[in-house]
């Protein structure tokens, strides 16, 4: 099996994997980064969202062979201590219910706020509607995104 060199959370790592292995399973099974979640495997639910060169992408459909030299950030790389404004806002607003979708939600929100720290309701809806939450935490996600944007502006 080929060996790939990846840039994950500002570290350089080497992994041996089949070329078509989705990044999701490389993160979870090879690198023990379990924060990125498996939800659908089909780019439908957003549970597996990570940042690829700063943009929110679905890691379940990204083959590892396409990712050399790309900058990848996972939920673990956002901040280990929860100090990122989006993580802060998520905890303060008490968004999670079961919590399973939330890493993906946070990653989508973080990518949004990174490029737009004053998002409109429409911007938020566009950025967050790719992430499903079966627990129905959407009303609090809205509050948390607005709060995170406020923190980011400071």
């Amino acid at each position: 099996m080929p060996i790939y060199t990846l840039q994950i959370n500002n570290r350089t790592v080497e992994v041996e994997a089949d070329p078509d292995t989705p990044l999701l399973w490389v993160l979870r099974d090879e690198l023990e980064l379990k924060g990125t979640k498996f939800g659908c495997g089909k780019a439908q639910c957003g549970a597996c969202t990570v940042h690829l060169n700063g943009a929110a992408v679905r890691s379940c459909v990204l083959p590892v062979s396409a990712l050399e030299y790309a900058q990848i950030t996972t939920i673990e790389g956002l901040s280990a201590d929860g100090s990122h404004p989006v993580q802060q806002a998520w905890m303060e607003v008490d968004v999670p219910q079961c919590g399973y979708c939330q890493a993906g939600q946070i990653m989508s929100a973080a990518a949004l706020i990174e490029r737009n720290s004053n998002p409109s309701d429409k911007d938020i809806a566009a950025a967050m509607s790719g992430n499903i939450c079966r627990c129905g935490t959407y009303p609090r996600i809205k509050q948390a995104v607005l709060l995170a944007a406020k923190y980011a502006r400071k």
């Binding site: 379990k34 924060g35 990125t36 905890m91 999670p96 919590g99």
Partner: peptide, 20 residues
């Protein structure tokens, strides 16, 4: 109103679920 006790673990991607 008491926030969920696992909020931080969830927000930082700790391996707390069964699949993890």
């Amino acid at each position: 109103s008491i926030p969920g006790v696992d909020n931080k673990a969830i927000a930082t991607g700790q391996p707390i679920f069964g699949l993890d």
